[in-house]
Amino acid sequence: MHTVTRPIIIFLCLCLALLLLFPMVGSAFYTGLVTKIMILSIFTISLDLLIGFTGLVSFGHAAFFGIGAYLLAILFGDLEHINYWWSLTLTLSLTGLAALLVGWLCIRTSGIYFIMLTLAFAQMFFYFFFESPRFGGDDGIFMMNKPEITLATRQLVDLDNEHDFYYFVLAWLVGVYLFLSMILRAPFGHVLIAIKANEQRVRALGYSTPHYKLVSFVIAGTIAGLAGFLEAAHTSFITPAYLGWHESGMAIMMVILGGMGTLFGPVIGTFIVVLLQDFLPNFTEHWKLIMGGIIIFVVLFLPNGIAGLIYSISNRFFSRENSGREG
């Protein structure tokens, strides 16, 4: 179990400061790219709640990302004025419901079955959108307008403005991070982390572990839906590819590369992978070859990811400070 030590907190604050300052120096293109990365980070953090903290290897998490995005586009895409509060509430509750249904079926299995089942359900949703002409089929679906965030007729954030959108997403990212660190510190989180370590024993100590896993699954699914909602609002264009298993695979990659079982790891992983995806095609058309090589390298030599590296470095240099702390 990792503890957030003081050097890590300082590191995270530095990162946050960089993100806050970035739009002032970055070009419009890169501001948009970082916005996209932060949206994906929300998604990968939610996946980490399953993989890294609950021990549930979901290979279909992209489904909830896609469902969130599609729900916004389908339910509100044609409206001239989209009420942010309404659209967000409805999208998240329906995505949560989908996660509850899928989770309820999947939680009854474990190990390989769980991996395969989550994958298969994701494929089911993928084909649902892929084959339905009403929702755009494989061409995807457009949104005319962005949600309008107003409070008592006053506009709070203008999502049509790329800078505003950037800070809006950054606020969500910080919010999700804080929310998850809160539930992980709470009694609920303690049980989750123990389930990952030894489910049988946790059951014998009096916890109905399937319920805890299910709640974790629903929380993760809902947050993934939030990321999808933001993505749909950002790009105004959704395709079934968002739900595909390649997306789920890449998301797992981001979590592992960044470091599972930490909340900031997936963010780092997402930044690296997306920047590579953006950068490598400049060199070669066959950049996925390099991507594959990096994944293999990570699996064989860096199983704890970059966060693991950061921890071992910070422990080496600051070991006196954090000995005797626990939590």
Binding site: V57, K288, G292, I295
Partner: peptide, 24 residues
């Protein structure tokens, strides 16, 4: 001896590599 998670990830990487080799 590795966790399923790493098996998923490594064999996923093999797909990426195989598809690229095929394209080359």
């Amino acid at each position: 001896r590795r966790d399923h998670l790493y098996q998923v990830l490594l064999t996923y990487a093999l797909i990426l590599i195989a598809n690229e080799l095929q394209s080359i």
